[in-house]
Design a protein around this nucleic acid. Structure first.
Length: 206
DNA sequence: TTCAGGATGTACT
DNA sequence: GTACATCCTGAAC
């Protein structure tokens, strides 16, 4: 059972805050991958110079940001990495939440293969520490690319669940304790003037 | 542990 | 032509 689509129809900043601690479930072929969301950022086209759809800009790339809530928005950055977002707010209002970091729960074998072409046992300390702690790494590890751009919410390939049991998977004991969600300004948007200061990044300390 | 520099393609001016 | 919601490597400390 995935989160209801209405979850994504709400205020983008609140959705970003609420997504921390939820679970990303990715399916392809026989693979079922699950990861806990540890870091997000809000992007709001109406008022946010860092958003691709700032001031309701409409281009081929930003078209997906106007889609119904929960739609996947995947774009290429720096010529080689993909970033995963979920569209928020009612259809026609361009906004989204960027998934900046996750930690693996199920499917570690697949994730390690997707990221480094190795088994989990073969990873060195640096690779373990920097496994899925960035937007490009999340997409690489979960095998998310622009083919998923525009994917309607509720698709089996990519879901967001409130808990592992909602995804039909056993819970992890360490996930039961309450989370302290931290807040900060967003990363890598120094060009965005006053919007660069918005406290729209949410994360949990590991 | 921190830092500088390079890789790389697309969207948009 | 320029900028970009990034990541990896290798060198210095």
């Amino acid at each position: 059972m995935a989160l209801a689509q209405e979850f994504f129809a709400g205020d983008t900043v609140e959705v970003a805050r609420s997504l921390v601690g939820k679970y990303l479930v990715r399916r392809y072929g026989k693979a079922v991958l699950a990861a806990r969301i540890t870091e997000t950022e809000a992007y709001v086209g109406r008022i946010d110079k860092a958003c691709h759809a700032y001031h309701y800009r409409k281009t081929e790339r930003t078209r997906v940001l106007y889609a119904p809530p929960g739609t996947a928005y995947v774009y290429l950055i720096y010529g080689m990495h993909c970033c995963l977002n979920f569209v928020t707010e009612p259809e026609g209002e361009p906004a989204a939440v960027l998934i900046r970091g996750v930690e693996p729960r199920y499917g570690l074998e697949y994730m390690a293969k997707n990221r480094f072409g190795r088994t989990p046992e073969e990873l060195n300390a640096y690779q373990r520490k920097n496994f899925l702690n960035g937007p490009g790494k999340v997409c690489a590890g979960l095998r998310i690319d622009r083919q998923l751009n525009g994917l309607p919410y509720g698709s089996r390939e990519l879901e967001v669940c409130g808990s592992l049991s909602e995804a039909g998977l056993p819970e992890f004991p360490e996930d039961q304790q309450k989370l302290a969600v931290q807040v900060s300004k967003r990363i890598g948007i120094d060009y965005a003037e006053e919007a660069a200061e918005f406290p729209w990044r949410f994360y949990i300390q590991l």
